[in-house]
Every structure is written in C-alpha cells, then in structure tokens.
Design a protein around this nucleic acid. Structure first.
Lengths: 341, 341
DNA sequence: AGTTGTTGTTAATACGTATGCATGACAGCA
DNA sequence: TGCTGTCATGCATACGTATTAACAACAACT
C-alpha cells in the first residue's frame, strides 16, 4: 500500500495575488520584479511593496516552463565520502553560484537508463561530469540530446568536449623523476582504476619517467583499485607480501597514499625510513602532521572554477563550437614521506 | 562564423509528439506511461513503443507545475568538506532515493533572505536541516510557509518539529565516566560551537558526568570552535600552553579530535601516554591505524534513514500532527587513545 | 427497445510565469 | 487640430503535464 492522495498542498502566493494587491496585471508584476525597464518607478515600487507584504516567491517550475531554462547545473559524482570530491565540489558550487546557477548534485552509482533520465528531464541546463569512466556512453548520449556538459577532473578519453583537468601524465612523471633522483630502483605503484583517465594517465607518466631513467616497474609491483582508502591499505599489504618489496610507492591519489601509510604502520614499517610514499592531489589532509605526505599538488579550486566557467559560457552561447580544454600543471610538494633509498 | 545565439533551445520531445506518433491524445500518453489502469493494454503498448522510439522523457517542470509537487527534498548543509557531512548525506541520499525522492543539496553559508528564497520557490517538497543553529529563525519561517522539514543531527532547541538525533548528553556522560574510571582529574574539553545542540549537549552531559564524580572542569580547560580540524589543532595548542595541562581531553567530534592529536604530535606529546584523547561520531577515519581513536559511536546511517522516513511520512500525510523525535543511543568505542592517568 | 453501466478515449482546463502584440495615454511637433 | 512617437500597461498565449468532466462505443440488464 502507499500514501493517500495528498489532498491540496497548502495555498501559496502567486504573481496573480501580488497583481491583485498592487492593482496591476500579472505580466506587470513579472516585469516589475525582474527589473524590466519599461515599468514606471511608481508601479515598480507598488508591486515590490505588495510582493513583500505577501511574501511572494516566484515559482521555479512556472519560470522554468516559460523560459525553458532552470539556471540549474547537474553535477555527477559517485562517492561523496571520498574526501577528494567535497574538495572539488565546494569551489564548484561557489563558482556556479557566483555565476547565477544552482548546483544539483547527482550521486549516481551506475549509468542505468533510469539514472540517465534524471539528466534529461529538463530539470537542469547543463552537466558537470566529475567521475566519467573511459568508454562511458553518457557523454555521447548527452551530446545527442543537446545537453551541454563539461568534464571536470576526469574525461572519457574519446569524447571531444569542454574539459578542465590536470596534466596527469606530467604529474606522474614528476614523481618518477623524484624517485629516480632519490636513487630508488625497486618501486611500486598503487594506482587508480585503469578505466579512469586520472588513473591511467598518472600511471602512464610515471612509467615513462621511470623507463627514461632505466628503472623498471615490474608487473607484480603494481596494484590498482578505486581511489579509496581500502585500495591503498590492501594494496600495500599485497605489495609487501611479495618477495620483491619496493622501497618506494607511488599512490594514485592522497587517499590511497593514506591507506598505504596506515598499512605500513600496521606492518611495522617506518615512513620514509623503510618506505617512501608519494601521493597525488595535495588534499588538506595530506598536510596533517600525522601524515606529512609528500604529494603532487594541483589547483583544485582553479580547476573547478574553470569547469564552471566553460560550462556557463557554453550555456550562454558565448563559447565557440570547438571544445576547449583547460589543463593545469601539477607540482611536487616535498614533505616528510620521501627519502633517499 | 559559428552557431547563432541558441534562440530556441534544441527541440525536445513532449508528450504531444508521442501522442501524434502513437495516434492517441496527449492525456492518453500521460496516463499510459504512468500506469493508469484505465488505459487498454493495446494502447499502452503502442504509446510505450512510440515513447521509446522518440526517446521521450517527461518534463520535470511541467509535471511539477501540474502536480504541485517535485519529489525533491532540499538538504541544508554548511560545509561539505567536513568529513562528517558526507557520511551523513550519503545514507540520506540513498534512503530518499529508495522512497522515490531526489536530494537537492543546499550549501548555505548564512541565512540570508536570498538563500531562504531557494527553499520557498516550490522547487522542493520538504527540507532536511542538518546544520541548524540554536536560535535560528529558519524553522519558524518554514513552518509559517507550510514547508515540512525535519531536523537531522542538530536541532534549534526551541522548535518543536520532527527530528532524528543522537542522545548527545548521554554521549558526553559516557566519556566523563570513562575518564573518571581511568582516574583522570585534570581534564579538558575542546567542544563544538555553543550555538549548536550537538556542541552544547555533549558538553552538558560531559560536565554532569564529571561533577557527579566530583571532578571539576575549570573554565580555562575549555576551548570551543567549529567542528573542524583547526579547532582541535589550535584548541590543544592553547590548552597545553596553559599552566594547568590536562591529562585527558574530550573533543566535540572526531574531526576535532584528529586536529588535537596532530597538535599533540607537534608538541611531542604521545597519545595516550602523555594525553588521553576521546572523540565523538566514530567516522571511518577514527578507526585508521594512524589514529586508532577512542570515540563515541552512534548510528549515523540509521539517523539519516530515520530523518528521511520522518519527512517522507509527513509529506505523504501519513504522519500525525504531533512532532516525532527519534533518538539514538550512543556507545563508547574503546580504541587506543585512552589510558589511565 | 430502452435504460444503465462499463470501458477507453478525447476535449477542456489548470498549474505559474514570461513575452509578443495590441492598446491607451500623453507629449511634441507642425 | 491632427500626426507621430514614446512610454506604460494589459491581453492573449505559450510552455508541458496531469486531471476533471464529457463523451462515444458497446455490453448487460430489464
């Protein structure tokens, strides 16, 4: 069974009520409150007063229906409890707000048709994809339906679309160069998923950097998994259970690195004495004394702002047709978890 | 040169298009797709087929306008980067989803009139308040406007409304009793804001528990601040700069406790050797080896689910008028950060 | 054969706002 | 005084869906 029909939701004030009170027509109310210059000052004042008195708030649905735009942006994320995303979404929210848009968070676990419908019911004007997977068909679908979108942080690899991303390869290479400089020859990698550009490209750059210096990355020195704590924790346990223990490990992001450090602690390994650990992202957490994590920093705020800018410009028709990419350059932040071999 | 200003947003399929293709009227499409039993099987099939073929997705605005309901819930939060909230919002999102509602995240810094409007433009059917402040006028305003809401985690103290909360006083008392049992007589508190029920009541219970055992909590042994890392970090530095250094500190939540532990590390204090630290919430982070934090656990998921349930029931009119409270009982989780004096 | 249902469908309309078009008032000008 | 133009406002309508009421078609009773 279910709920009985919710009789009549409580009355609410419409522009007609305001019009009646102010002694004008409904369209005049609309124009007056939206600052249309064709309304006389006297009338505008009267309308404002009436609206104020009644506590009038324009209906979002009515406006959307009429203007065919919602001033709302959908942001697709999978896992909010991963600290990375709040730090990405915070600045994104603020920047969208600043540009007159509201953020609508869409926490999608999978790309079911049902989930996709939520993007297509015209309740949002555009989409920010932060957790795109390589090979995802969602972007193509959005393009087909004419719903503008922008990649933030991750891409799909194939789709040509607006994007704000870090140069992940460069970041991976930075870490490789540092490890080489420190004299490490037995290195490990606990990377992100292979079907994400962030996972793939960081690994790619890391491998390139190593091989240029003649350092190998054996297959059994590599573990991969979701960008979360568990991946780092289990990944390090696995790596260390193997006969060829690495002296340094590059982790796909800070959260993985923190998982790895905790596992190291459990194994009684000191960092960086017994093991060098390097992360990626430079979340605030990385700077905590407990971790003091050496990592790769990039401009998370700037990236989020750029994505918001790209999308909003496209929505306003100000953008050219060609997709635009904004790439941020990462930098190594040396802290306390790396040491010479 | 390129696309003209997108005067007409790209065509989109409406129920009229589906009707035309299926050779029926628009209302029939509406009924057929929504499973109205008065539509014949044959017609329903034809309509479904047509809808499928055209890729029809009903317009959310149209539906909202007509039904006067959006199946959307606004969730008010201040700071997403505080790990506590994602852990609260995750299960909340899932439970709302399960009950057929979508979550709309409203990240509000302040209670300006402008912000409040977003709650009142009829784009949401109800509100979950997770960061209510004691003395806030927002709940009264919502009541006045007939917008149902529920308190989750925090309350305002005065308003009588549905709420899902922990017994914060009991939690604080648990900690006091444990510290007393361990023989601590010089105790400190780094609490949450005094204008939050979570901050106030945990302190209240803690004080009660202490005084019942004849242990005092001197004014200079108390620091308060936002429920964040910085509060814990600076709070502990301050406490330890004072002449009367406590041997144990109760922190308003886990995030504060982690800040405090990091400060302890900076000061060269060992935990729990030199200092006992106890938190509140039992976030996953608390169990990390690095912290191994003794804390107070409560059922975060259950609380979020309860809040969703209370609100949805009220929306469906199934709830009685009387406000209902669901209170969760906390329990001490002994880990590695507490020790006898 | 006439009445009464029953079933499946359409027509008309409501929801709240925004906008193109028409209109009325009034000033400026000759 | 008539003509033109500007300004402020109202009228009619569109947006997309859901719902009420009306209506056919047809079966089932008297």
């Amino acid at each position: 069974m279910h709920s009985p029909p919710p009789e009549r939701p409580p009355m609410s004030i419409t522009s007609h009520d305001v019009a009646r009170l102010a002694g004008v027509s409904q369209p005049t109310v609309s124009r007056a409150l939206r600052g249309d210059h064709r309304v006389s000052e006297a009338t505008r004042a009267r309308v404002r007063e009436a609206a104020e008195a009644l506590g009038y708030v324009p209906s979002e649905a009515g406006r959307s229906l009429s203007t065919r735009s919602t001033r709302r942006i959908g942001v697709v994320v999978t896992d909010l409890t991963n600290p990375f995303y709040p730090h990405l979404i915070g600045p994104l929210h603020d920047e969208l707000e600043r540009r007159g848009y509201r953020m609508m968070l869409l926490t999608e676990r999978s790309e079911t048709a049902l989930e996709t419908e939520r993007l297509l019911d015209r309740s949002i004007d555009g989409v920010v994809l932060t957790t795109a997977l390589i090979g995802s068909t969602l972007p193509a679908e959005l393009t087909r339906r004419g719903l503008p979108f922008v990649f933030l942080n991750r891409e799909t690899g194939n789709d040509k679309a607006d994007a704000a991303v870090v140069d992940n390869e460069a970041g991976g290479r930075l870490v490789a160069e540092e490890l080489v400089r420190l004299g490490h020859t037995d290195v490990g990698l606990i990377g992100g998923p292979a079907d994400t550009t962030t996972g793939r490209d960081r690994e790619l750059g890391f491998r390139d950097g190593l091989s240029e210096a003649g350092v190998g990355l054996p297959r059994r020195g590599v573990r991969r998994g979701p960008f979360d704590y568990g991946t780092g924790y289990q990944g390090l346990l696995d790596l260390m259970a193997d006969s060829s223990r690495p002296t340094a490990v590059f982790c796909g992001n800070d959260v993985i690195a923190i998982g790895a450090m905790n596992a190291a602690r459990r194994l009684g390994l000191t960092v960086p004495g017994d093991l060098t650990v390097i992360g990626f992202d430079d979340l605030p957490m990385a700077a905590w004394e407990t971790f003091d994590l050496t990592t790769v920093r990039h401009d998370l705020d700037g990236m989020a702002q750029a994505a918001a800018g790209l999308l909003v410009e496209r929505l306003s028709g100000a953008a050219s047709d060609a997709p635009r990419r904004v790439t941020f350059t990462p930098a190594l932040v040396p802290r306390g978890t790396h040491a010479p071999r």
